[in-house]
Structure formats: C-alpha cells, structure tokens
Amino acid sequence: MHIDPRKCVACGNCLAVCPVSAIYIDPVIRRATVNLDECVECYACQNRMSKEDLNPTLVRTIRGFFKLLRIRFDPEPDVCPTSAFAPQQLAWPRSIRQAFSDPCVPHESTGVYGRGTEEVKTNDVTNRVGPGEVGFTVEFGRPAVGARFREVQAVTMALARIGATFEKNNPVTALMPDPTTGAINPEVLDEKVLSAIVEVKTPEAMLPAVLRTVEEVAATLNTVVSVGVAVRCDGDGENRVEKALAGEGYPVFRGKTNLGLGRLSNLDAQATTAGAAGPAGR
C-alpha cells in the first residue's frame, strides 16, 4: 500500500487503523508514509476507512491555521479526508501478503475467503477430523501482530519432525514443496503476513507432544501464536480431549461448536463420497 503524498494531509487517522503499525508521519516530508517492509497489504486502511475527497491544500491550510492557534479539533477517527491511499500492483512474492492478510481476498490454493481454510467448521460433511483424531490450528501473527513465513517454518518443520500430518486443503500447506518436511517455499520466507494458519492432524495420543512442540518453538519467535484444538464428539456430544486439556491447565471454556447440521448435497460429491462423512459417520 502506498499513500499519495500529494493528497495526504498528515491528519494521522490512518496511523491507528493499521493493524501492524506500519504507517507513520515522515518528519521530513510531513506526510503519512507506509513502511513497506512491515506492511502486510491487509487493506484495512483502504477498505475499512471511510473516505472524503476534500481539496488537500484547503485542508492543510485549515489544519495549519488551527495548529497556529493551538486549537484542537475533533475529526472523525475513521475517515481519510482526501482519499489518499494508493494501492500498488502486487507482484510475486509480495502478493502473498495480501492473500494471507486481507480477508476479502480468497486464497488461490483453496478458493476460501478469510484465512483460506474451512478447518473444523465443515467437519460435519468433510470428516476432516475423525473419531480418535485431534486437529490443531496454529495461527501465526494473531492477534494483530503479524508474522513472517520464516517464523512459521520454524514450527512447521518441528511439527513435521514429530510426525504430524499437514492438512492438504490449507494455504500454508500449499506453500510446502514437500509437506513431510514442513519446509516452506524459500521465496516467501521473508514475507510478512497478518495471519497464517497451520493445520495438522494427529492421533489423540499425540496431543501433548504437539502442544509442547508448538509452545517450545513459539517461545523462540518474535511473534505470537494462537492455538486451537479440534475434536470430534461422540453420539452424546462428549469428547475425552476437553478433560485432558483442562487437566493440563489449558483454558477450554471458549470455542467453536459444530452443530452437525450439514449434509452432502452436491450431486458429484454424493457420487464420489457417499457415506464417507456427515452425521451418518458420527
């Protein structure tokens, strides 16, 4: 993302709305400027701020006059008064920043909007996490810190070493030339994104090993990681993993509950996966 210095009036509204604090007022040119190395191309500034199209010279003059008189005025905090954002054409590998940061852009590898993965949300029809298995979502850079793929790779390679299986329909897995190693395409390692979700699946018995591995490696990183653990419930809606996690001291009071109301309905899916998933498989 760029900010057009001819339009910017240095009001500073966009500084606060940038999730990764990549926008600052350059003291030399006295205009808002984007640190492109830190910018994750999430487009929060461009897409979520309201916009006016005021004359920049007029606005600068008024602001300068108020400043001279030490008058503090109270602008709307979510408005760019001169529509100064200027999105740039993103070439590879920088384009990956937007794919992993702007939730309005679908991931090419999965076709899914948001963070690019259905994870356990459609487990009632995909059977992604089956009985006796545990699914893990390890989200790098969340909440709103951002992460580079080099940091993601530190964990994915550690997970590969302990034998975790990476979810095939996942945008981070799509960046691995060989998912059995956990290594990520070297072209993107220095790219920074707002969020990258790694998904692995293991037998239930490996739950402590995976969590220990993630925590140990995450402690060495310059970012934060949000961890989710997904399980399939039995016919009574129970599962053993909740108790095991609580016993290990993890908070399990909040989560996401799949109600199991989905079913196969695409004609081609019924032909190829009849009986493989859905409530009948519970």
Partner: peptide
C-alpha cells in the same frame, strides 16, 4: 454437537 474446537489462547 458434532465437533468442537477449543481456543487454547495465545503463545509466543
């Protein structure tokens, strides 16, 4: 309920 995903919070 069919499946549950628990939030284990923030690490790193």
């Amino acid at each position: 309920r069919h499946s549950v995903e628990y939030s284990l919070g923030f690490h790193g």
